Simulated assay, not measured.
Amino acid sequence: MTSAADTAPSPASPPAAEAALAALRGEIDRLDDQLHDLVMRRAEVVASLAASRVKGGASPLRPGREAMILRRLLHRHHGDLPPGAMVRLWREILASSSAMQGGFSVAVYARDPDQPRLAREHFGSMTPVRSMPTAAQALAAVGSGEAQVAVLPLPEEGEPPEQAWWMGLDAPRLQVVARLPFWAAHAETLPEAFAVTPGAPDPSGADRSLLRLELAKDLGRPQLLAALATAGLAPRTMLIRRDGGVVRALAEVDGVVAEGDPRLAALPFDRALPLGFYAVPERGNQG
């Protein structure tokens, strides 16, 4: 009579285990070569794009286009590789592609110690990043061409005037073009920042805009919210400052709102100035 022990498969012999391991390593090597070939081919296409006249001298930074790429990849992603690792890989590829088309550096107002890390993770580990002592100096570096991107903390209610960089942002010459990080595993307790560059951002298909509102008469928060909603610009968030008899508000609204938008003319304010827009960030716990 045959026992269970007699029919159980015997452990793989050391030579067989080594052969299996060698086969897996060989497969990884072949995949690495294929990946490398594709990365090199991608760089060739980027170089052709940079040499062509299609872009017409525009900035190599295309945050809206990058957001579209990452959203598509996140939608199709599956398997054991964490989505955050995939995003990090592509952020390095995208940053390298931008550098190939002209190169850029980043000026960071490091009010929070996480701001430089956010900048490096978003714009690539090889991109030069300089910490600046004030938001004004970071913006001045971009305005002078010393840097191509300023990374600034999100505005906060009641912050000191010198930290409220949005009040003096020279739009439309400088505009908000991105919100960092674009992807994160969770939505809560995230350090975040805005990126500001010269010129207008490019739409991603799912965007939010920032508006600076100025009025000599204080309408109060309910009246401000109602006026924006009536014009079709109901804000998701709004900060209000009262300095020297002038009321300024920063409103965040859904969609792309650019200069000349007819909804702005319907607002009963002394001035309504778009400060740019950004791709809505992706969060891993959404859906």
Rank of each mutant, 00 (worst) to 15 (best):
G84H: 06
R91C: 10
D80Y: 12
G102F: 01
M68L: 11
M86L: 15
D112T: 13
V106D: 01
H77V: 03
I69Q: 08
R65C: 07
G64M: 00
L73H: 12
L89W: 14
L61S: 02
V87K: 02
V108T: 04
M86N: 06
R76Y: 14
D80A: 15
R71D: 01
A107Y: 01
S105H: 07
A99E: 12
R91K: 14
P60A: 01
R71S: 00
I69C: 07
F104Q: 06
A107C: 07
A95H: 08
G64F: 00
R111C: 06
S59W: 01
R76F: 14
Q101W: 03
R111P: 09
P113H: 09
S105G: 15
L89I: 15
R76W: 08
R65I: 04
P83Q: 03
R71I: 00
R91Y: 11
G79T: 07
S97H: 05
R65L: 06
L74V: 04
H75P: 07
R111E: 05
H75E: 12
L74F: 03
P60E: 03
G84V: 01
D112C: 07
M68R: 15
G102N: 05
E66A: 13
I93F: 14
L73T: 07
A67G: 05
V108Y: 03
S59L: 05
L94N: 08
H75L: 13
I69A: 08
L94F: 09
A99T: 13
R91F: 08
R71L: 07
H75F: 10
P82I: 01
R91A: 05
A110V: 09
L70E: 02
L74R: 04
R72L: 06
S98Q: 12
W90G: 09
L61I: 07
S97K: 04
D112Y: 14
L94K: 11
S97E: 08
A58D: 09
L61Y: 03
R88Q: 15
A58S: 15
A85D: 11
M86H: 10
